[in-house]
Design a protein around this nucleic acid. Structure first.
Lengths: 345, 345
DNA sequence: CTGAAAGCGCTAACAT
DNA sequence: ATGTTAGCGCTTTCAG
């Protein structure tokens, strides 16, 4: 004996009007089509009967699901929960629901996740997994599905994106180290096929040059992970170049550097200074506390959601890029270089 | 001129059969109602035309959305992303999609989030936000909505839950400290209205008694956060009881203890040992590395999803509780007590 | 301003 | 084994 959920029909009966009138009255967009008195009455009645519209049924008709897909490379990376918060906040305020999918940095999983999302008729996608030339982006474009990239951009800006000013961020780190007296700085770069990896690397080289610093060796990590950071750091230190600091392209890579230093019995920051990027949660708790480029995680999410909603409203609007300014949080992992230039190779 | 998405009708036309035949052929559950030859043909055709069924439209008819709501208290707490992974994995394998909602530990937000989820016609809910007597649980019961609690349980087991064996976990921590020689141990407890807070506290007192240890002061934190841990730790140390170790009810609280110790100029573990609970990501990176009770995050999520799916299939099945066994990860925050009994109050 | 009627894409009785 | 016929709950022409 399941009591039938009160639908638009029940309301119409109770109010003695036609269902379509109810629909019009309760939908903000069409409310003005109905007389004020009736609208008011229906609203009261709706509250009394505990009526709530069914967005799914409505979506079948309007071809709008009120949902947005969010692709995240790795939810265990503490940067993303914060971005998510911003996204959900802005989306919820507009009556939208986020459907989150993890890709584990795996293009295959990403494709599968994306397929499930489109099957669910998402109205748009926020993509945090983008590589510089990403198949998913091409697909969104082809499908005419509104999409916004977050944190990472793609080559050729055919799609909107909210990113950090990576070059500026890295410049802050390099300037900080230079001010401490470092003259030879290395870089553990992120993957070259991801915009942040590429931009931070370019930013690093530019900053080093701007400060007139010495040889600046670079080792590229093959993913944003602690293990990859450790490997890249080993490679960097194995180049036989004397450096007194390492700028890592993100915090996980920086932690990998910690590990490699420990393995070699080198103290941070006494032997080598390390800086990270993202200022992830608990970065201040690490040993040593990590100097890192702080980004506006939450704002990034909020802006991405805004951009997407705007694009859903007006699909033909031009793509735009929002670039957020980071700042530097100085902590214990960076200090003046050892006095005698130290050979670390 | 948007090319109309190929629907079941288009397929039917192309194959020269009736739409319902297509439906039957493509739905695993009804596939056996249709002749093998036709089924095969339709499958091929579907692939060729790039047809994919619309679960939303189907759901309108079947009253099943294929979605599950997941309520998380705080996605920035690193325990939850890991649980989520397990949930999504198991759900995706069954063709279900998770819709995640953050409540920020706020009952008001929880209610709102829950309302949005039910409006979306979720088939069930996984609740990680439960207090011991939770309004949401009552509501699920009333609505007949399948629900499973994860990590936290509720009083009275009217609903299924997947939890840790908290008493066993705390017992491991106490046993470890006792083995190191600690005779006076304090506890920073979690909120009393959350099952984990209550169970770990009870487990602590039981373990202390079982080991024949001395007076065991307890301070209760009003939330699972670093700040609350710091306050509770201050309270604990202010009781004027001499203790040499603190068992914290979770890792964030343990970090709060770190802060309070630092404020007082007390070294951990030299002056006071600290243990946490959850073994959150990066606990091994803290200063000092945190001894913590490790829980089976991912398994917890997987089992919760399983339980929920079973309940969706058979809504009248009895509630059951799965209790997972934790173990202890020993790190630098716990050591033998100082030789002369130290007065910390 | 409101009612009537059609239909979004699919599934589920009920035929046949 | 397949076709017929409704209809899920809502929105949207089109009339009046």
């Amino acid at each position: 004996m399941k009591t039938r959920r009160t639908g638009i029909q029940a309301l119409a009966d109770a109010a003695g009007v036609h269902p379509s009138t109810v629909s019009r009255a309760l939908n903000p967009r069409t409310r003005r089509l109905v007389s004020e008195t009736v609208a008011k009455r229906l609203e009261t009645l709706a509250r009394k009967l505990g009526y709530s519209p069914d967005p799914v049924a409505a979506g079948l008709r309007t071809r709008r699901s009120g949902t947005v897909g969010v692709l995240i490379p790795d939810i265990a990376n503490p940067v993303f929960p914060l971005i998510l918060r911003g996204i959900e906040e802005a989306l919820a305020a507009a009556g939208y629901t986020a459907i989150i999918a993890n890709t584990d940095n795996d293009p295959g999983r990403a494709r599968a996740a994306f397929a499930r999302l489109t099957a669910r008729r998402i109205d748009g996608a926020i993509i945090a997994t983008a590589t510089r030339r990403d198949a998913l982006i091409a697909q969104c474009l082809k499908l005419g599905l509104p999409a916004v990239l977050v944190n990472r951009a793609a080559d050729g800006s055919r799609v909107s994106a909210v990113v950090n000013d990576d070059r500026a961020g890295i410049a802050l780190a390099v300037a900080h180290l230079a001010a401490l007296g470092h003259r030879a700085i290395g870089h553990v770069a992120g993957p070259g096929n991801i915009s942040t990896g590429q931009a931070r690397r370019a930013g690093f080289l530019a900053a080093v040059k701007a400060h007139g610093l010495a040889a600046a060796p670079v080792a590229v990590a093959d993913s944003y992970s602690v293990a990859a950071g450790e490997r890249a750091c080993a490679q960097l230190l194995g180049m036989g170049r004397s450096i007194s600091a390492v700028v890592a392209a993100n915090d996980l890579l920086a932690l990998g550097c910690y590990d490699e230093l420990r393995r070699r019995g080198l103290a941070c920051p006494q032997a080598l200074s390390i800086t990270g990027f993202n200022d992830m949660a608990f970065a201040d708790r690490f040993d040593p506390p990590l100097t890192s480029v702080r980004i506006q995680h939450r704002v990034m999410g909020v802006e991405a959601a805004r951009l997407l909603l705007a694009q859903i409203d007006n699909p033909r609007a031009a793509a735009q890029e929002i670039r957020l300014q980071p700042d530097l949080v100085t902590r214990g992992s960076s200090a003046a270089p050892p006095l005698g230039r130290k050979r670390t190779g």
